[in-house]
Design a protein around this nucleic acid. Sequence first.
DNA 1: CGAAATTAATCAAACGTTTGCGTTGTTTTT
DNA 2: AAAAACAACGCAAACGTTTGATTAATTTCG
Lengths: 338, 338
Amino acid sequence: MQSKPTTIKEIARLLNISPSSVSRGLHDHPSIGAVTREKIKQLAKSLNYEPNNAAILFQKGKTYTIGVILPELSEHFFSTAISAIEDEALKKNYTVIFAQSHDDYDQEVKLVEKMKNQRVDGLLVSISKDTSKFDHFEKLNSFNIPVVFFDRIPPLKNVHYVACSLESATVKAINYLLKKGHRSIGMINGPTTLFASDERKDGYMQAITFNRLKFDPSLIVNCDLTEKGTIEAANQFLNHKRKPTAIVAFNDYVALFLIKYFKKINVVNDFDIVSYANLPIISYIDHSPVASVEQYPYLQGQKAANILLDLMNSPNSENQAFYNTIVESDLIVNEGKD
Amino acid sequence: MQSKPTTIKEIARLLNISPSSVSRGLHDHPSIGAVTREKIKQLAKSLNYEPNNAAILFQKGKTYTIGVILPELSEHFFSTAISAIEDEALKKNYTVIFAQSHDDYDQEVKLVEKMKNQRVDGLLVSISKDTSKFDHFEKLNSFNIPVVFFDRIPPLKNVHYVACSLESATVKAINYLLKKGHRSIGMINGPTTLFASDERKDGYMQAITFNRLKFDPSLIVNCDLTEKGTIEAANQFLNHKRKPTAIVAFNDYVALFLIKYFKKINVVNDFDIVSYANLPIISYIDHSPVASVEQYPYLQGQKAANILLDLMNSPNSENQAFYNTIVESDLIVNEGKD
DNA sequence: CGAAATTAATCAAACGTTTGCGTTGTTTTT
DNA sequence: AAAAACAACGCAAACGTTTGATTAATTTCG
C-alpha cells in the first residue's frame, strides 16, 4: 500500500551494478556502455524512477529555486508578471517561491532574509512603496545570490533591472491628447516619493516643451492615490483658471475614482481621460479612459526571469556588467472612443 | 568576500564538541546541559548560523512544501486565495509552490505528476474546467501526499475539500429578487458538466418551489461563458414568452457581457442582474449587478491551507474521516442600487 | 557502599546522489 | 611482445543534519 519512491540504489541493486554507474548511466556519461545504459534507463522507466530532488539539491548545494518578492499579488499587474516568471522558470526546471511585502518596508527586509535562508539561487524583486533603503539587498551579494529588480526598481546604478519606460509612454500619451486638440492637460500624479511619479512628470514636461507649449506646474497635482485624494485633485482641476479638458490619471484606480466622481457631478463628458493600465476590465465601464499606457507585465516578468536565470548560471566573474532592460510601453487607444 | 554559510560542523569544531551536540543544543534537547546549550546558541547567533534547509529536507524526507494547482492565477479569486494560502503556510514555516493548469486537463495531470516528483508534502487543488477524471489524484494516496480541494472540487465523496455553498447562496439571491417583486427570473448558467452549474440550478429550483411558484426550466439557459454564448442566452430571454425581469448571471464576466449587450440594445433598465463575485471592481460600472454572491476566496484559501497542514502533520491512521468544509457565501446587496 | 538511576555528551549511521580516482580487463600501438 | 591507450565499471567520500544507541561521569537511594 505504502509506496516508497524508487531510488538509484534500488535500481543498482536490481541490476547488480553500483549506484554510481546508475547515476552515470542516467546522465549519459560516456564511461557507461551502451547496453548497460539502456538497461538502466529501461528499468528506471518501468519503476517510475524520479530523482529525489531534495537529495540532489543538497548534494549540489543549489536549490534550483528562485524567489520572488512583490508588493501585492492580488494586483493584476503582479499576478500576470509572476505567471510569466513561473512559466520561464518551469522551462529551465526551476521552482518559484514568492512572498508579498504588502508594500511594507520591514516586511520586505524580513522576506529578503528569509529567502536568503531558504537558499534561493536568485531573487526577483519589485520593491515596496515605502522602501528607500536598500542595504538588505546588498547583503545578498556576499552570498552570491543575484537579484534582478522589475517594474518597481530602486534608484541605484549598480543593479540589474527590468522596467517600463513610463516617461516615453507619458510622452506618447500627452502627444496623443495634444493631437486630439487638447491644450490644457491635467495630470493626477502619485506621491513625490515614488520614482514612477518622477517619470510621469518628466514625460509630461518633455512632451509639452517639445511641442513648444507653456508648461504650467499647477496642472500636475500630487495625490495619495486614494479615492478621497483623487477627488481633491479633481476639484483643483475643476476650479483651475485654465480648466483642463483632458486628464492623465496615475493609474486605473485613480481613473476609476475620477470617473465615478465626474459622473456624480455630471461633468464626465467634459474630459478625456488617459490612464496607466492595471485593471483588465476597465474598458468595460462607461466613459472609460480614451487611452491606456500598457506596461506589459507578462513581458517584464519574462525578461526579468530570463536575466536572472542567466546570472545564476554564469560564473560570477563578469560582475561589472549590469543588465538594464527597458521594456517599451505602448499607448493603447481605446477603440470606439476615438 | 565570498561568504560561506555557517554550518553545525563549524560550530562544533569551534566549541570542541560534536556536531550532534550542537544540533541537540539548538533544539533544546534535554540531554544537553544548560551551559553548553547557551554557548552553542550564542556562537550560532554571532556567526549568523542558519540551518541548511536542503540538508534538513533531505534528511527528514520531507520538503516542507505545499503545492498549489489552480486554473488561472490572474483571476482575482485565485490570486486572493493563494495569497491566503501563502500567509497560512508562512506561519507554519511551510513554503508554497504553485502552478497553473490554465483550465486544461492534460496540463493538470502533468502538474500533479510534477508536484509529486517535487515531493511536495501536500497539495491544494482547484480543478480545471474540463477535468472529469480524477485518477491522477488517487495516485497520490499511495505516496501519502494528502490533497485538499478548494472551490472547484470534484464530485467525489472520499476527498477533503473546502468550498462555497453556491446552492444556498443562490437561494438567497432568488429570494432577494422575489422580494423585490420579480416573478420571472432568468438564469444564465454554466456548462452542464460543471458541478457549480448544478448547484446554481438546485438553488434556483429550491427557492422557486419553496415559494410555491411554478418552476419553468426554460428560464435556465446553459452557456459556455463566452461573450457570444452570453448574448445567445440573453436573446433567449428577450424572446421568452414570460420575459424575465431579473437575471442571475453565472459570474461577473457573464454579467459584464450581459450588461454590455443590454446597453447596446437599450434594454439595460429592463433587468435587475445578480451575479457571483469575482471581479473586484464590477460595482464601479454603470448598471452593475444589484447584488453579488460573495464567495470569500481568502477565507477558503485559509481554511484549505489549515486543513492540509493538519493532514500533513497527523499520523496517516485516521484515513476514514474526510474534511468537508462549506464556507457560507453571502449575498452582498449593492448599495445605492436598491 | 554498591547498585541503580540520572545527566551530559559522543558515535555512527542514515538520507540519495554525484564525482574524483582507482581498478579491472581488452584492444591498439610500436 | 611489451607498453600504452581505452572502455566499462566499482569504491568511497562528500554534502549538513538528525537520531537511536552507547558511553562516561555523576548523583541518588536503599
